[in-house]
Simulated scan of single mutants.
Amino acid sequence: MTDRRLTPANGRVAARELMGRVEADRFVAPEPASITVPVADLWSTPERTARDRQLLLGEEVDIYERRAGMAFLRARKDGYVGYLSEADLGEPVTVTHVVGVPATHLYSAPDMKRPAVARLSFGARLRVVAGSDRFFETDAGLHVPRPHLTPANRPFTDPASVAQLFFGVPYLWGGNSSDGIDCSGVVQAACLACHLPCPGDSDLQEAVLGQPLGDEPPARGDLYFWKGHVAMAVDGDVLIHANAHHMAVTYEPIEAAIARIEGQGDGPVTSRRRL
């Protein structure tokens, strides 16, 4: 059985490499594109009834179908498949920098007193074409405070430090930005910033990330999985996670979190994995 989240096929069209493996009216080559808005919702259906995930400015996608204002596509960062508004898509961009702080603003001029044009989340991707002492200029002619960007080819080295940047961010089901994020979104942001491949949802993450742990004591960066949930240890006693109990990204003692989650009926830890 195929996982529709990872299978670019919807009956009408399918990726060419799936010929002979799935049924579709047409098998097509992908059309490359990128996200042109700060945050774009990726939907499970073109009717936009359920958000699966979000994509950030500059992230790359492959489009397989355009229909009634919606694009059926696959995100290159993790292979996630879904529907996204065509209005949020544009030509591919050669990214040079990423937002390396929780959030920043785009300005119409290199002047912090100007009204902000947009707010960008950690992980947003930009092409820088010029710079001054205080601002970078993007290929769109907009300006970003220089300290807020990091070269795209210079990864972070500690996933837990990235996860901690999201402390206090509101919980949002399917969220992937510092405006709102869910448990797997925090883990994915932490891993991708360190150039560690990472799927989008917690069950997919549990299947592939790191190495399984036995009785080893917890260490910084270890992942704790429950059915439908994931958290990351920041040390031997405390974890950080986006959770619906607090409706935010919070710190919680590991043993207290385990007891609380099982006590509320969501079961025991299903695995621990070390990145």
Results as ranks from 00 to 15, higher is better:
residue 178 S to I: 00
residue 265 G to D: 06
residue 255 E to C: 00
residue 139 D to T: 00
residue 139 D to P: 00
residue 109 A to S: 15
residue 19 M to I: 14
residue 180 G to H: 05
residue 11 G to P: 09
residue 162 V to N: 11
residue 118 A to N: 08
residue 150 T to V: 15
residue 38 P to T: 08
residue 175 G to W: 10
residue 190 A to P: 09
residue 240 I to A: 07
residue 101 V to P: 05
residue 219 A to V: 06
residue 117 V to D: 07
residue 6 L to T: 11
residue 70 M to H: 02
residue 201 D to S: 06
residue 8 P to K: 01
residue 239 L to G: 06
residue 85 S to A: 15
residue 265 G to T: 01
residue 69 G to I: 08
residue 204 L to F: 04
residue 25 D to R: 14
residue 129 V to A: 04
residue 93 V to I: 13
residue 226 W to I: 06
residue 43 W to K: 12
residue 70 M to V: 13
residue 145 P to T: 10
residue 209 L to A: 02
residue 101 V to F: 01
residue 140 A to E: 13
residue 45 T to Q: 14
residue 229 H to A: 02
residue 230 V to Q: 10
residue 27 F to N: 08
residue 81 V to T: 14
residue 41 D to P: 01
residue 272 R to N: 00
residue 194 C to M: 08
residue 60 E to A: 15
residue 207 A to F: 01
residue 71 A to E: 01
residue 127 R to K: 14
residue 124 A to G: 14
residue 10 N to M: 09
residue 261 I to A: 00
residue 102 P to R: 14
residue 105 H to K: 13
residue 68 A to I: 00
residue 202 S to M: 01
residue 96 T to P: 02
residue 71 A to Y: 05
residue 50 A to D: 12
residue 25 D to L: 13
residue 16 R to F: 10
residue 50 A to I: 12
residue 85 S to F: 05
residue 116 A to Q: 14
residue 115 P to L: 09
residue 160 A to G: 05
residue 120 L to Q: 04
residue 47 E to Y: 13
residue 139 D to Q: 07
residue 54 Q to P: 06
residue 171 Y to L: 02
residue 2 T to E: 09
residue 88 D to G: 00
residue 44 S to W: 14
residue 41 D to T: 13
residue 235 D to C: 07
residue 255 E to H: 08
residue 170 P to W: 03
residue 140 A to W: 11
residue 198 C to N: 10
residue 125 R to F: 02
residue 95 V to H: 06
residue 151 P to K: 10
residue 196 L to K: 08
residue 238 V to K: 01
residue 58 G to Y: 02
residue 114 R to G: 07
residue 17 E to S: 13
residue 253 P to Y: 04
residue 127 R to H: 11
residue 56 L to E: 02
residue 215 D to E: 14
residue 267 G to A: 05
residue 63 I to N: 09
residue 102 P to T: 04
residue 151 P to M: 07
residue 108 S to W: 07
residue 156 F to W: 15
residue 48 R to T: 11
residue 160 A to E: 05
residue 89 L to D: 03
residue 218 P to L: 15
residue 61 V to C: 12
residue 16 R to H: 12
residue 121 S to H: 05
residue 252 E to P: 00
residue 98 V to L: 12
residue 274 R to P: 07
